[in-house]
Amino acid sequence: MCRPYRRLVDRLRAQALPCWICGHNINYKPYGRRHPLAFTLDDETPLSKGGDLLDPATPVAHTDAATASGGRCR
Rank of each mutant, 00 (worst) to 15 (best):
S69Q: 14
P36M: 05
N27V: 07
D10T: 08
G51M: 06
C19A: 04
C2G: 12
G50D: 10
H35D: 04
Y28W: 04
C73P: 13
R11G: 07
P4T: 02
G32T: 01
H24M: 15
D55F: 07
P18M: 05
D52Y: 02
D55E: 10
P18N: 03
R11F: 14
T63R: 15
P30N: 14
L47N: 13
A68M: 04
P56A: 04
L41A: 02
D52E: 13
A66M: 08
L41K: 05
R6N: 12
C22H: 06
S69L: 15
I21A: 03
G70P: 13
R33E: 15
Q15C: 08
S69M: 15
R3Q: 13
D43C: 14
R13W: 02
C2A: 14
P59H: 00
F39Q: 02
L53F: 02
A66E: 03
R7K: 12
R6D: 08
R11W: 11
D43A: 10
Y31R: 07
T67C: 15
V9S: 08
R3D: 06
G70F: 15
P30H: 10
P59C: 02
S48R: 14
D52A: 00
A57W: 09
P56E: 13
A66Q: 10
P56W: 11
P18G: 05
S69T: 12
L47P: 07
R72T: 09
H24V: 10
Y28E: 05
P59E: 04
A65S: 08
F39T: 01
Q15A: 07
V60S: 00
P18Y: 01
M1L: 08
S48V: 09
A65T: 03
E44A: 11
L37F: 09
P36F: 06
D42Y: 12
C2V: 10
T45N: 04
L53V: 13
F39C: 03
T63M: 15
R74M: 02
G71A: 10
L47I: 12
A68P: 08
H35Q: 09
S48C: 12
D52H: 09
H24Y: 09
H35S: 07
E44Q: 14
R11T: 14
F39N: 05
L37S: 09
D10L: 13
F39D: 06
F39Y: 07
K49P: 00
A65Y: 07
W20V: 07
L17I: 00
D52K: 08
R13C: 06
P36K: 09
